[in-house]
């Protein structure tokens, strides 16, 4: 067997199932990354139940709910785009992904207004008002900024991933019989959604 043959073997080598398993394993690490934070949140909420309940009154349920709806809808558009590519409708699939990106942008703009309102009140860790908060409430806001901030970073990462998929769709590299990249981008996006599904009640709803 000569070398050329091997190299072409490498190139042909394609295993969608392996890609998917790899992606899921990566998602597990993401889950546990947030898992560590959820653990911290759970313990501190348990130690300071009243302070957490008080502090969460500061957050706007309306903002949170709108963002939850936006994110769930974006999950839907991603899922739909995958089933359309399977039906060999790349254009439709692309439009659905663009819609997802727009929803992601809406989420981020919303987040921006929410954060700036909180920062305006001096609730960012280290600011004057923050330092005067009762102990438990300060923890709440530290965690709020840390966790939603990390989540927002994941939205950005997921958007970039989806952007790559759109580019590949443009080039015709993602097709009705070869769409594992799009499926993996979808998995990532859904994971970001799942994490928000937990962040939302923990920060906004439990008073």
């Amino acid at each position: 067997m000569n070398m050329n043959q091997t190299i072409s073997d490498h190139a042909v080598h394609r295993d969608d199932e392996a890609s998917k398993i790899g992606m899921w394993l990566f998602l597990f690490t993401e889950l546990l990354l947030f898992g560590g934070l959820f653990l911290v949140y759970t313990i501190y909420r348990n130690l300071n139940p009243d302070a957490f309940a008080n502090a969460s009154q500061e957050l706007s349920v309306a903002f949170g709910t709108i963002n939850t709806v936006v994110l769930i809808t974006s999950s839907l558009t991603v899922a739909l785009s995958i089933s359309t590519i399977k039906d060999n409708k790349p254009k439709m699939a692309k439009n659905l992904l663009w819609l997802t990106l727009i929803l992601a942008a809406v989420f981020m703009v919303n987040k921006y207004f929410e954060w700036s309102a909180k920062i305006h009140h001096g609730l960012f860790p280290g600011m004057e008002h923050f330092m005067q908060l009762p102990p438990g409430e300060a923890l709440f806001f530290f965690l709020y900024f840390f966790m939603t901030g990390l989540h927002a970073l994941h939205i950005v990462a997921g958007s970039i991933f989806i952007g790559v998929v759109i580019a590949q769709l443009n080039k015709g590299k993602i097709k009705y019989d070869d769409y594992i990249l799009q499926e993996n981008a979808g998995l990532y996006w859904h994971l970001v959604d799942v994490i928000w599904i937990y962040l939302f009640p923990l920060f906004y709803l439990i008073h």
């Binding site: 690490t29 889950l31 546990l32 934070l37 860790p125 280290g126 330092m131």
Partner: peptide, 23 residues
């Protein structure tokens, strides 16, 4: 399954040092 936990913990330490207040 275990490494991400240390990852996030170490990030918390960095955040503590950067912001000057801590978890």
């Amino acid at each position: 399954l275990a490494t991400p936990i240390i990852g996030i913990t170490l990030l918390m330490i960095v955040a503590e040092r950067v912001l000057g207040v801590g978890l």
